[in-house]
Design a protein around this nucleic acid. Sequence first.
DNA 1: GCGATCAGGT
DNA 2: CACACCTGATCGC
Length: 459
Amino acid sequence: MSSFAGRMKEYPTLSLDRFDRENLHSRAYFLSHCHKDHMKGLKGPLLKRKLQFSRTVRLYCSYVTKELLLSNPKYAFWEEYIVPLELESPTQISLVDEASGEKEDIVVTLLPAGHCPGSVMFLFEGSQGTVLYTGDFRLAVGDASRLEHLHSGSRVKDIQSVYLDSTFYDPRFHQIPTREVCLNGMLELIGNWISQSSYHVVWLNCKAAYGYEYLFTNLGEEFNTQIHVKNLAMFKKMPEILSYVTTDRNTQIHACRHPKDEEFLQGNRRPCGCTAVDGTPLRNQQSKPSTMWFGERTRKTRPEPVPSGLFRFHSSYSEVNSGSDDDLFDGLDLEPVRKKMKNERRRRNVPQRRELQPHAVCLSVQSLLPEHGLLFTRPPDPSIGAEGTVTSPVLLLQRKENAGPIVPSELSESQASSDFEVPCTPESKAPQPDELLHLYRKLASGDEVVIRKGSQGSG
DNA sequence: GCGATCAGGT
DNA sequence: CACACCTGATCGC
C-alpha cells in the first residue's frame, strides 16, 4: 500500500489530485477525475482564499471532470479558476511564482484513462523531463500503444518517471476480467431476471458517484429502458448518458440511493421506496458492481478459506442475490477471521482504515515501449524513498511464448522489445514491488525467468 | 457552529 | 481483503 501526497519530484511546484498541506503552495493544480479520494482539500477554505488573491493559479482537468465537479455546489467556487483541456491536445502552461515572478513553462497533455467519465492521465513535458501521472486508470491491453502522445515518431518518448496508480499493486488483483466480460455477465444476469415479469426489479447497489455510466448506457440500450438514479444534474451536458438515466421511479432497473434502501428492499419495495401501482409485491434482486472493472464474488464462487486464514475472492460476474446478502457467507463463520485480520493490522501498526488519498508509486523509467508492453526502469534513485516506492532497479516484463532464454547481461532494448511482454499492463494491473525485485534479482543472477501471462509467479 | 478526524457501515 | 463512498460521534477551534 502506498499513497501519493500530490506532487512529483520533477515538478514540485504543481499538485495533482491532492490539495491540502504542502499542496496549498502550488502554482497549478490538476484533477485526474472526480472521485472524492482524489479531491482531498479541494473544497478547503484555505485554498479558496488563496485563489481569490491569485491571478495565475488554476485547476486543469478535462471538460467532463469540470462538469461533474461544478455540479456539486460545494465546489462551485472553482468555476472561475478551472481551465478545462481537450484530450490529447498538448497545452503550454506557465508556472508562476507570484511572489518573485519566477516562471517555468511546462506542456501538459491529457490522455484518456478509462476509469470513469472525464478521467485522464497527465503527461508533462518540460525542463525536468517527461513524466506521466496515471491517476486511476483502466485501459485494455494495447491501448497505451495507441496513445500518440506517448510516442515520438515510431519510438516511445523517454519518460523519466511514471506515477502509477498502485491500487492494484497487489497480487490478489492479478485476475481482473475485462470490462466486456463484466458487462456481458451483467447483461445476462439482469436480462434473465427482469424478463420474467414487470414486477422483477434489479437494484444496482453502486458505491462510487461515477464510473457506472458505461453499465447504465449498455443496460439501457440492451433492454430499451432507463435506469433510475437519484439525480441527473451532473449529466445535464452529457446527452449520451442522460438519455439512459431517469428520475422516474417506475422502472425495473434502479441505481438510486436512499437512507432506507436496504430496508425497502426487504419489504418488496424498490430501493427508492415505491411499490408496484397495483400493490403486487416486487421481486427484488440486488447487484453490487462494487467496481465492475474487477468483478467480484457470486454465489457460485463464494469466498473460499485459504490456508492463511484469509479469503480470496475470485473474480467473476457481479454478485446477484435475492434481496439480501445475509446468506452470502452460508456455512462460513467470518468473525474469527475478521478479528484475526484486525489484530494483525494493529500488531503491524497498519491503519484500520485507508486514508482518503490517491495511491501512486513513482517508477523511474528508462524507456517505455507500450507497443511491446515493455517497461524498463532506471537504476536506484536515492531521492525516492517514500513508502511504497520501488527503490531498486526493476524490470517489468514478460517473455513471449516463442522467445529464447534470457541472458541479463546481453539484454538489449531491441532484443527485449521483441522477446518480452509486460505482465503489468493496465488490464492485468501491476505486480507487487517485492515480486518485481524478486524477478529482477533472478534476472540479474542469470536465472531464466518465465512468467506466464496473468500469473504472478516466476521460475 | 464548522471542519477535520475517527469509528462504524454498505 | 478491496472500491468509493456515507453517517454519526467526537475533538479542536
